[in-house]
Design a binder for these strands. Structure first.
Lengths: 195, 195
DNA sequence: TGTGCCATGTAACGGGTTACATGATTGT
DNA sequence: ACAATCATGTAACCCGTTACATGGCACA
């Protein structure tokens, strides 16, 4: 699922400009994918060249022209095909968890601030998901379920972090500079074997 | 947090070869980051050139030589610095959720198989996390907490999907070819505004 | 006046994945 | 014999992010 296909999919809900698509991706979609102008505009141009979308340039009074894109029949078919071929991938890339894994190298104060920042971030996202259901077309059944999924997962993460807050803090290095005694002659191989 | 820093961090647990690191990343780490040989080996070479790691080539009897790497004092410091500067990023990239969002375009049978595949995948990962605590150095407190986090989140996802299984299936298109009536003259703009 | 939103695009850069290339040992 | 595991690396490619470039309108 690259930006190209994502745009195609978003356009199945109705015509939109590149700018609109960006905003759309920042809504419920933001949970599980991201796209900037730098990938959206080239993707739209590509799709138009292949005949998967049609562009109706709309020169507005005064304003810079607004290019509205619609999916063509071929585009719709191509998108459904890509959905059918997709595998249920789900990748997480988390600096937060990496830092948590190396918590013993950090001073207590820093770790606590870091953890609190993450908790605050989760609360913000949960709040956003709870309110973003207001809006006409967006409150379809599929959107509701995907939002519900996000809420369930994020709430679980939030609960876990709050519940283990003190345990996590206790892992931090007592010394402010993070200078800890190293395990001597340790090897990673033992851990690796059991993977 | 790129592969370079990840390698550096992994080596703080003890010396290892590129091969070992790959295995290590496939363990608990696999939840929140990934790295292939194509990025590990160049990263190690780079780190060695900068003096952040030291390489002790170990020519084994018969076998291809095994290069063991250790962090230097400079490397350790550099790693702690990068931890201190890291922000609690947490990105999800999920084709699964994208497909779920467009479930109305898919035939029932396909959607059900897709969902079941994801549920099975989650069960497998949960099982893996539950068993992978066995192993000497790996069962430190930080590892335990990170694993616990993963278990909490994945269990929540699993529960949610099982609980809403029938609702999700009902979103699928009744017709096997996914030919649904389109919403006429729909626009994405209304949805986008509320983002 | 100046900040922020609407609106479209380009170009360089960074970074990871995939595929390729090689080769010995151990277990079936 | 054949597959799997150990073991190291290179090169092409894909793809997305970031920064840059531009410009009018609306609101404070």
């Amino acid at each position: 699922m690259n930006v190209r296909e994502l745009c195609l999919g978003a356009l199945t809900f109705g015509e939109a400009s590149g700018y609109d698509l960006k905003k759309f991706f920042e809504s419920t979609f933001s949970q599980f994918c991201a796209a900037g102008y730098g990938s959206i505009y080239p993707a739209l141009a590509e799709l138009a060249a292949e005949g998967l979308v049609r562009c109706t340039g709309e020169a507005q009074a005064g304003r810079p022209e607004r290019k509205l894109y619609q999916v063509t029949e071929a585009g719709r078919k191509a998108f459904v095909d890509s959905l059918l071929q997709a595998s249920p991938t789900h990748r997480v890339k988390s600096d937060f968890l990496v830092v948590l894994y190396f918590a013993h190298l950090l001073p207590t104060a820093h770790l606590e601030a870091f953890l609190d920042k993450r908790i605050a971030g989760l609360e913000q996202q949960i709040g956003f998901l709870k309110t973003c259901h207001r809006g006409a077309k967006d409150s379809t059944q599929n959107n509701k379920l995907v939002r519900g999924y996000g809420l369930a997962v994020m709430s679980a993460a939030h609960d876990y972090l709050r519940r283990h807050h003190h345990e996590i803090i206790q892992m931090a290095a007592a010394s402010p500079a993070g200078q800890r005694p190293r395990r001597d002659s340790a090897t990673l191989t033992a851990d690796a074997r059991q993977a």
